[in-house]
Simulated assay, not measured.
Amino acid sequence: MRPASGRSARKPKGEGHVRRAEILAAAERLFVERGYEGATIRKIADEVGVSSTALYMHFKDKAEILAEICEAGFGKLAAVTDEIEAETQTAEMALRRKMRAYYEFGFANPNAYRLIYLTRPGEAGGAEEAARRVGRGLFERLRSTVEDMSKEGRLNRDPHTATQLIWAGVHGLVSLMLTKPYFDWDDRDTLFDAMFNAILSDLTRE
């Protein structure tokens, strides 16, 4: 049973080796609620219901925890984009499907998305490089597909610039809808299709 506060009950001796998943889930919530500095090891341990010493048996510090959250989040998205890449289709269709997967990932994993893509410089502490690596990895995956469109003669702009514009557009929708949920947003799928089509129309030639 979890107490009314939502925290896990303190685990009795003999249960100190909690699953890493429990620690990661608790830390993810606290990083979003309190920021990197506010989510101390003691608070994360309390949230899970273990001692700080037990937590250190799984992670050397909170930077390692945040780095693993970032890597795990990107791993989910990377697996989906790999599946899309493996299928036979035009580069434009692959790009649309990859960006749709990115879009849906944000809503399915709002805390991980905030940590990876909405953390300001300096907020991620020792895990900042991991967050940057995740962001760069996604960008390169998208740019490879945009470059394929360029090879097909479909682009009227440099692939690097085109990738930035496409990513910025989709990220803008996700971040706004996550941080401003009270706004009277139109249908999520309709907004994605309209925005993506408008950007692609400007970047491609017939």
Score class of each variant (00 low, 15 high):
L176C: 11
A67Q: 06
A39Q: 06
E15G: 09
L30T: 04
L66R: 13
H160L: 08
G153H: 07
K43H: 09
D189V: 09
R34G: 00
H17R: 15
G106A: 01
E85F: 15
S175Q: 14
L30R: 13
A21H: 10
V18D: 08
L30C: 10
I166F: 10
E123L: 04
S5G: 06
T88L: 01
P12D: 15
L118T: 12
A27S: 08
F105V: 03
T90N: 09
R42E: 12
E15M: 03
F107Y: 10
R114E: 07
N111R: 15
L66W: 08
R7Q: 13
T204K: 00
T145E: 03
G16N: 10
G126K: 07
M99P: 02
A127W: 12
H160E: 14
K62D: 04
L118N: 14
F105T: 05
A162I: 05
A39V: 01
I166L: 13
V50W: 00
A112C: 03
K151W: 10
K98H: 10
D148A: 14
T53Q: 09
N156C: 08
G73L: 03
A4K: 04
M57V: 15
F31S: 08
A72M: 04
N197G: 07
F74T: 10
W167D: 13
D189W: 07
G135H: 02
L173K: 02
Y113P: 03
Y56K: 04
E33Q: 08
G14W: 00
A54K: 02
F139Y: 15
I65F: 06
M93V: 13
M99I: 07
R154Q: 14
S150N: 15
M149Y: 14
L138T: 14
